[in-house]
Design a protein around this nucleic acid. Structure first.
Lengths: 202, 202
DNA sequence: GTCTATAGAATGATAGAC
DNA sequence: GTCTATCATTCTATAGAC
């Protein structure tokens, strides 16, 4: 097996290495703070290669975000089972995503959604078209209140993720998953299926 | 009253005009996205003036944030009264701040805390030293659980503000204050004074 | 496929005239 | 107090050699 001579073969994993470095960089620094140069250095490649594979920085970001979150998975997992325990299952599935391999991408997405303009708008429409439309029939809620109920629950969970995974405030950051499930589950349950006094959709 | 000749007098409100423009710009674009040039244009002054008054961009931002939030006010307002209604008073005081004149500064702060590195760290320490230390004695909680209870409640409220004032997702964005107070108050109440099953501080 | 070199644009900051 | 002019830096993006 002679492999000493000739040009170094193009590493087919380069693309994945860039994506991985990009995910970390975006998660740590946010969209603006993460430079293509830094991402390239992190992946051990030349900055120009990043453009070669992904074109613009926007496209790289979108590629990084590709299937960062599958809200459908979480919704399915939560709605599959006893209706009285949707809350705890929802929180558990949600936290599992952030602790899983897609967690870094989720942090990057959250940072970018809050930090830059175009992702904010993009995300708002994503919520409306993807999450709300899919979640409403699955949950079988009164359509009049469904959107408010879901956004209330979602805002709570996003706030929890923000404090735990982005700001990393203690003791939330190092609390166990099940502690949080037990603490937050009932609140989510109430938003989704409980009594909301005199609430009308806006 | 002759005021036609001579150099245009230095407008003493210039400093305030810059601060106001900076608040809006930081709120809309975030720390990185808001350029000193854009802020100067918004205030109708020269970019160099911004440096003249505030030095660096960091200092301008900190000046903008000066008393953006007085968590003490909210804590006092919430803890002043019947203990069984701390939740709703907390939510009401919190939302009043975001709807008030300091709302833009609060949005700017939240965007920056999530979007840039140094504000994230700064904010984390601010929470620990300012909010937690002041809130714990005021609320008279079991010190073992106090931090977790407070951060749970705070994370919920921050998530609500994020969804309502930054991402502006409907129907949360245009729901009435009292609707949200009625909906979220009980959840906050439970975190602060209710039963949290088997919760230990991490 | 991978790299060097550089264009082109935007920004934070400074010096100094008026 | 206010402005013009400019420097130095940083970044995205492209062109082209190997």
């Amino acid at each position: 097996m002679v492999r000493r001579t000739g040009r170094r073969p193009g590493n087919p994993d380069t693309r994945e290495a860039i994506l991985s470095a990009a995910r970390s960089a975006f998660a740590e620094k946010g969209y603006d703070g993460a430079s293509i140069r830094a991402i390239a250095t992190g992946a051990g490649v030349d900055p120009a290669l990043v453009h070669h594979y992904f074109g613009t920085k926007d496209k790289l970001f979108l590629a990084t975000m590709n299937s960062p979150i599958d809200p459908v998975d979480i919704i399915n997992e939560a709605t599959d089972g006893d209706r009285d325990e949707i809350g705890v299952r929802f929180v558990r599935a949600f936290l599992a995503m952030w602790d899983g391999p897609r967690g870094a991408a989720a942090v990057a997405l959250l940072r970018s959604v809050v930090g830059t303009e175009w992702t904010t708008k993009l995300f708002r429409e994503f919520i409306i078209t993807q999450i709300l439309r899919r979640a409403v029939p699955k949950l079988g809620l009164d359509p009049q209140q469904a959107h408010l109920r879901i956004t209330l629950a979602a805002s709570h969970l996003v706030g929890l993720a923000l404090a735990r995974y982005v700001i990393k405030v203690e003791p939330l950051a190092s609390a166990s998953t099940e502690t949080l499930v037990a603490a937050v589950g009932p609140a989510v349950q109430r938003y989704l299926t409980g009594d909301l006094p005199d609430v009308f959709p806006a």
